[in-house]
Amino acid sequence: MTQWTPLHVKLHRTLRQRGLLLPGDRILIAVSGGQDSLCLAQLLLDLQPKWNWHLAIAHCDHQWRSDSTPNAKYVETLTNQWQLPFFLQTAGTEVPHTEAGAREWRYHALSATAQAEGYPTLVTGHTLSDRAETLLFNLIRGTGADGLQALSWDRQLTPKLRLVRPLLEVSRQETGRFCQQREITIWEDATNLDITYSRNRIRQELLPYLTQQFNPGVEQHLAQTAELLRADVEYLETQAGELLEQAKSQSEPIVKGEFTQMTQRINRRILETAPLALQRRALRQLLQQQLPKAPNYEQVEKMTALIQAPNKTQTDPFPGGAIARVEGDWIILSPERR
């Protein structure tokens, strides 16, 4: 029988307190071959007798490196030793060599595998350290509280697939120590050392500098900040959604024909009674529903300015051609007519 370590105890307690995984769940574990995902896989395998999970391993090969095929083979060999099902997704030439492009392909591939094979839960080895890095990455790019909340414990990828990150209270130092203690061979990804990637530069240079020069516990404190902001964002998003529905409640169709369903009327007199934070969030939610891609700061501000703008004011076109204008007490958001 496997001897439990403090990390086993921490994960077992986290899963119970947060309700992240349930007994008997069918769980697909994303394993890259690095220390975090291997640590997670071994921990879940050790806890499996107590939870009666049905576990499987998935690996995504981006084909970026000359050793990517041996890496995939190593994960498959390890999975066979664990006597678990193994699923491999290999990228074609369509995956761009960017962090965002690789992440988008990876989640698409993992989602497709999970749904095709009947695993409603996908787990990844994101850690406290990843949460701190993501907060810094988003802060540097420019973001609000939503970006700073940096990696949630769980979220729905599709109506039938839930993503869970069980290690958000575990540091990369802890996962490395666990793999060393259990003598788990880690497949080192050379691209993680390439500081042309922003996240790697944050990991290799910025966080060590902040740790040495400002605060030895900076990773922990950044992750705690992200956790506090997560609860704030959830509350504000709920309140903004209610405000938006209230502002739309008196709306009537004003355009006949093909544009009727896409045109929105928002009562700006209702919006102006709310705090600015809720005004922005409500109008951002509206734009998210209507535009082909997520609105940026400038686009949300253009909409918010209409709350106090003179009658007949209108914006320039948003992506996709939609235009917002003021008509009396109403903000009208409608598609561009052709």
Rank of each mutant, 00 (worst) to 15 (best):
E104R: 13
T79M: 05
L278Q: 07
T5K: 04
R131D: 05
N200R: 07
A72P: 12
E227M: 02
W105H: 14
A324H: 09
N71G: 11
T315K: 02
R162V: 03
L210Y: 09
D329C: 02
T127S: 09
L167P: 06
L207D: 02
D25V: 04
P6M: 02
Q115T: 10
Q212P: 00
R284F: 04
I195D: 12
Q42H: 10
G125C: 14
T69Y: 10
E205H: 14
E205C: 07
Q250F: 10
F137A: 10
E94H: 14
N215L: 11
N311P: 04
I57A: 09
L122F: 08
E104T: 11
L168S: 01
D189P: 00
S198E: 12
D36I: 06
P310N: 05
G217V: 00
L128F: 02
P23L: 02
I331R: 03
V233S: 01
K73Y: 07
P49K: 04
T313E: 05
S32M: 05
A226L: 01
D25H: 11
L122R: 06
L55C: 06
R155C: 09
N200S: 08
E298R: 10
Q173C: 00
E301C: 08
V326W: 01
R141S: 12
E272I: 10
C39M: 05
T225N: 00
Y74M: 11
A58R: 09
L110D: 05
T196L: 14
T313K: 11
F214C: 05
L20Y: 02
Q314L: 08
G118Q: 11
P96L: 10
K302S: 09
L43S: 00
